[in-house]
């Protein structure tokens, strides 16, 4: 959305609507910034999920024996 508004602002500028183009440009910058931050947070969350790995054979070996759930 941000990128589309950015392109639209350049189109308006070319058409001579510089004032409108400038405001659309500012809005597009804000959207791009917010979108980028959201993507970064999502990436970090995904990385956190990935780092919460399943136990390795070595970790299982070192675990204490616990009563089975039956």
């Amino acid at each position: 959305m941000g990128v589309l508004l950015n392109i639209a602002s350049f189109a308006l500028c070319v058409l001579g609507q510089t004032l409108v183009a400038a405001s659309v440009y500012l809005v597009s910058l804000a959207l791009i910034f917010i979108g980028g931050r959201g993507r970064k947070e999502k990436r970090e969350k995904k990385r956190q999920v990935e780092t919460r790995q399943e136990p390795t054979p070595d970790e299982i070996k070192r675990r204490p024996v616990s009563a089975p759930e039956i």
């Binding site: 136990p55 054979p57 299982i60 070996k61 675990r63 024996v65 616990s66 089975p68 759930e69 039956i70």
Partner: peptide, 14 residues
């Protein structure tokens, strides 16, 4: 993984 560790699965995994 538990088999590789030579462990009884039900005693080490929940």
């Amino acid at each position: 993984a538990a088999r590789q560790a030579l462990e009884v699965e039900v005693l080490k995994l929940r």
